[in-house]
Each structure stands twice: as C-alpha cells, then as structure tokens.
Design a protein around this nucleic acid. Structure first.
Lengths: 229, 229
DNA sequence: AGCGGGCGTTAGGGATCCGTGAGGACCGGC
DNA sequence: GCCGGTCCTCACGGATCCCTAACGCCCGCT
C-alpha cells in the first residue's frame, strides 16, 4: 500500500511520513502541486493525501489534472472549513475531505476506508503459476498459460479447491497430515489419511505436467505434503 | 440512483427525503436499525445514509450486518464528534462519516462522491454481448445484434435483471451460491438454493443460444455459477 | 526373503446437487 | 371481478461429487 502525501508544510509532511511508515505504509512525498501530479503519474500510489493550499498549482487543479486520467482515491486535507470549498473539492473528484487540525486516528481510519475501496475495486488477480497453468483462487479458475479467455482448461471440485487453497497459501512450507485434514475435512477426520492420498492424487492428475512424477505437490513420508511453486 | 436514509429523527428524515428527492434521487426511509437492514436487503439501495443513534439495533451493528454480505456505500450521520466513534464506524465498514449538524451542500457533495465511486465501476461494461444478443445494463434492454431499433427482443423480470447484473459485472469469475443469494434475495435467504436454480434456468432460456447446452451461464457443482462472455 | 506400514491409484455406491416443469399466492391495471 | 405478470413452492429424473473399499508399489525392518 503506497501513499502519496502532498503538503507544503514541511513539519506536517514529516509527521505524516513517520506516522504512516510506522503503520506499514510506503510513503511518497511532494511539496507542491506540480510535484504531486508528477508523482501520481510516475510513483503509482494507491492513495493520495492532498493539501489544498499548496504553491504553484492550486489544489483543485491538481485534483482535476489527476482525475483526467487516474481513479486513485484522493483524500483532501485543508485548513479551510467553509462548506463551499469542500463541495468544490469533492465535486472536482476528491473522495474525502478532512479539515485541519485533524485527529490522527480519524485520518488513519479514513485512509483505511479508502484503502478498502480500492482493494475491492481493482484486483491484480492474486494468481499462482503451476508449470504452464495459471491458478486464480479468487475467480476459482485454472487456465493454460497464455489463454486469457475460453472456458477454464481445468475443472476442480469444491474439496479439491479447499485443498489447493491451503497449498497455495503456504508455498514451500510443509503441511502436516493433521493440519490438512483438519482444515479441509474438519477436526473429526484427523486420522483419515486416505482422504488426503486420494485428493492429492486428483490434484496431481489435474495440475501436474507429469502426474506420475510430481514436481509441485510433494510428499514427505510420515509427515505430510509440501507445495513447491 | 436509490438512497436509503435511516434515522430515528422523523423531522430530519422528512427533510432529507424532500431534499434528496428534489435532486432526482429515489429515496427509501427507515427509522430503526432492523428496518434499515431489511431495506438494504430487499430495497437494493445504491447508497445508505445511516444515523448511528437509532433504537433497537446499534448503528455499528447495522454496519457490520450489512457489510457481512453487501458492499453498498455507507455514509454515517452522527451527533457524536469524538474521533473514537468515527474510527469505530469507519473500521466497521462505513465509507464516510459526517457529524450533525451538517451543511446540506456538503452532505450532497459527499453523496455525489460516493455515487461516483460506485458509478465509475460499471461504465466500461455498459453493454455486453451474449451470443448474438446485446445486453445494456443501464438501459435495461436486450436486443438482437444488429437491430438498433424496435422494442427489446427479450424481456427480463426485475429479479432476473438483478441476477444478470451480478453475472455481467463479474465475467469469468466464479460466484458462490451464497454470494448470489445474498445479493439478489438478501442475507436471510442464503440457503434457498432453489431460487437460484429456477432463475438461472430462466436466464438461460431467455439468453442462451441453446438453453439445454449453456455456454455462458455455467454451473460449478457444489460451488456456484460462472458467467463466460 | 518375508513382512508391514505408508503411499498412489482405480472402481463403484450412495448422497448431494442441479435442471426443469407444473401450479398456487400475490399484486396492480383494466 | 377478471387477468396478465411475477415470484415462489414442490416434485422428480439426471448429473456430479464424496467417500469407501480394494489392489499394487516402494521401502525399511526383522
């Protein structure tokens, strides 16, 4: 999550950088409008914190310039409290408006709200490659590499998806029999190792280039299984 | 654009209804939390204005209940100005927070901002081709390819439109039974899989070239349905 | 060599899920 | 009151999936 902070107040800029970095955000900074526009274009931020009172280019023009080509969420910071200015900024394309001085925890909460919005909106498709197959867990699709359309090349059953999901979420890690059985079939089937043998076999048949010589779904005798990307 | 206004203050409710209606919005109203949840489920609003201080069900619980199954934008109105309450509401899933008393033009601007957010999403897919049919979600029409004039070749019922809309907005992705049921019939019908079977069947009969061999509305047994363009 | 445990695979049977038709309940318009 | 449209309930044949049982195979142990 990368945030661009644009403000001409160096002290506030520094405070925001520190606070945001401490929350795990990646921070870009700009101190005037031109720099802000440039960094939106070339820095690819996921969210913009924009002060309206910056030199060289008016904040409203920054919003309009950005909105001409980008849909990145814009959260406006401003000292002005009159509603006319808020209306102008929001109608120019801003997504939220906070007046200074502001409570930091409120600002952070509003940032989280905007981050949610972009998280659900655009999905770079959390996708994993297995040989020449591409697995998309969210869309529940497995397509042959290169084929972006046309029905899914491979169909998996619900149980197969649950098992595959566990493997893909823990790449390279050893997953014990009990862990896998408890997560897929529930805690009362920790001893039914036969289920695992059967479904791992089916996953290999559908996903391994050479099912007889597994290279991604590996067995560790006596322990469990491991997924190697 | 349909807006649900939930507030226990009858006078404010009436003022908002009149103001919003004058701006061309369709307005639904609720005066307590339970009614609000019910209307989100069955009224299919595009935006929710929610007062936090309502009887019967706490406002925060309303947010959580709605967020459990719907992504509709929620704009909170509240008399409380302390930032802790704002943070709670925003983190529960609200998209914006306005404190009473508020300036009406600011509220309207924030409503427009939220409306943009949901509107920009569907523009690129305003029209979709299914076989030799062309579906226009905005105009709610289905015409045979080539015929630009004349009445719609195919008529769909309101429920069929809601279902079709979900499919067209998520092309290629698997939509689970629960997701579809919750979005079309509300969260209290997550188990009525029979509804889905029936209406998918009707969509296929009206939209598939060969209803008996569906190529666009596909079923994944045990999981849900998938729309393939 | 003989044996036993863990592993991979195959082949059904029973349960669940799906597609579709018919018909009743409800509503607004004429 | 009548009627067309929409939504929902119910029922049943067929498709799909999950689980059980059984059979080789490999490897380490006796």
């Amino acid at each position: 999550m990368r945030i661009l902070v644009a403000d001409d107040d160096a002290q506030l800029l520094r405070a925001l950088r520190i606070t945001l970095a401490a929350r795990g955000y990646e921070v870009l900074t700009a101190s005037d409008g031109a720099e802000a526009i440039d960094l939106v274009a070339n820095g690819h931020p996921d969210l913009v914190l924009l002060d309206l009172g910056m030199p060289r280019i008016d904040g409203l023009d920054v919003i309009r310039a950005v909105r001409a080509w980008s849909g990145v969420p814009i959260l406006v910071l401003s000292g002005r409290t009159d509603s006319a200015e808020k209306v102008e900024a929001l109608d120019a394309g801003a997504d939220d408006y906070v007046t200074k001085p502001f409570a930091m925890d409120e600002l952070l909460a509003r940032i989280r709200a905007r981050a949610r919005q972009s998280a659900t909106g655009d999905e770079p498709a959390a996708t994993t490659r297995i040989g020449d197959l591409v697995v998309d867990l969210a869309a529940k699709t497995v397509r042959r590499d290169g084929e972006t359309r046309g029905g899914a090349s491979v169909r998996l059953t619900p149980t197969e998806w649950r098992l595959l999901e566990l493997f893909l979420r823990n790449p390279g890690r050893l997953l014990t029999r009990e862990m896998l059985l408890a997560d897929v079939w529930g805690p009362y089937h920790r001893n039914d190792a036969g289920y695992l043998r059967l479904y791992v076999s089916q996953l290999r048949r559908k996903l391994e280039p050479v099912p007889a010589e597994p290279r991604h779904f590996l067995n560790e005798p006596g322990l469990g299984y491991r997924f190697e990307p």
